[in-house]
Every structure is written in C-alpha cells, then in structure tokens.
Amino acid sequence: MGVLVGGLGYRNLRDHSIGIAVSDTLMERGWPQGICVEDVSYNPVALVEHLKEEKFERAVIVAAVQRPGRVPGEVTAYRWDGKLPSDELIQAAVVDAVTGVIFLDNTLIVTRHFGGLPETTAVVEIEPEVHEFGESFSAAVAATFETVCELVTTLAVDPQALLALPRAPLGGVSRERA
C-alpha cells in the first residue's frame, strides 16, 4: 500500500509533455517510503495490471489536457469522482488503449473499469497552449512547472491535502461550470 505519483503524456510534444516532465523531475527527489513516482504513459491495460499488483492506496496523476473554457497554463486539481461513461464509451476507451493511445481520460477510464486505480485519485491537469513537436514549454505552461511540481508533491505526501480537493468528474469543475 502506498501512493502512486504518475506523469502521463507524450515526450517531445512541448506543453503536452508536462506530465512526464513533472514525473521525471520528481523521480530525482528524495521521497518517503511508500511513495512511488513513475511515468505512466503506457498501455492503460498494462497499467491496470501494474496497479493490481502494487495495490496503491492513493494516486496522483498529472497530465496536460485541453478542455474548453480554460486558459493556457491553468492548473486544475480535483479528486476524480470515478464515474464512468457508458459501456460503449468504455469499450471505445479500451480500443484506444490497446491500439496505442495515451490520453488521461482514457487511462483513468480503463484503469477504473478494470480495477486497480485507487478509490482516492487526485488528478492535476494543465491546460496546454502549444500543440506541436518540440522540447520546450510555452511561456504559460513553463511558468506553472514548479507550482505543479510542488502541488503534486503536497498531494503525494499529505493525505489531508488530497482529500481537501473538490470531488469532480473528469476535467474537474471548470470556471464556466462553477
């Protein structure tokens, strides 16, 4: 039992790589026993298998995701309510999973449906600005990097901080909806 800190995304895709960049950075830091920092950007079905073996108590997943109504660099953190879409959409997520798609929603849906994802899972999303190949972040996303690292660290080591996050569906509670 422990805490999984997972960075998710594609490498060398500028803002879309921030999830992995965060996990790469945090891996270099010292962590209390029981906290496991990983790159979880791989086949979600394989991640299900990994999660079932490790049986984490909590998880913090960080990724760049484009959502309507957010501004570039905006950070959204929430406890996922775990509500799954229709079976048809879950099946679509599985198909994406087994054919190589790496995407936050997909990974969360597949790992929740097949089991393994901890009941208490915090999601940290960063709104990307640029959508192209490259190694550097846009200014908006680069400005959030350290903040995101600190936020993820806090959520990983402090269960109360994680529980204090709003419970929300995928995408969190947007400013428009709030």
């Binding site: 594609y10 190589g100 798609v101």
Partner: peptide, 18 residues
C-alpha cells in the same frame, strides 16, 4: 501519429496510435 494539420498545427488525442 503525426497529426500535422496544415493550418492549425493540431495534435489530437490519437496522437500515437497505429
């Protein structure tokens, strides 16, 4: 894989599928 859309530089979520 490389969802190079000619105008917007759009990358979709299927970015690395088959």
């Amino acid at each position: 894989t490389t969802h190079i859309h000619s105008e917007g530089g759009v990358i979709t979520r299927e970015i690395n599928t088959c």
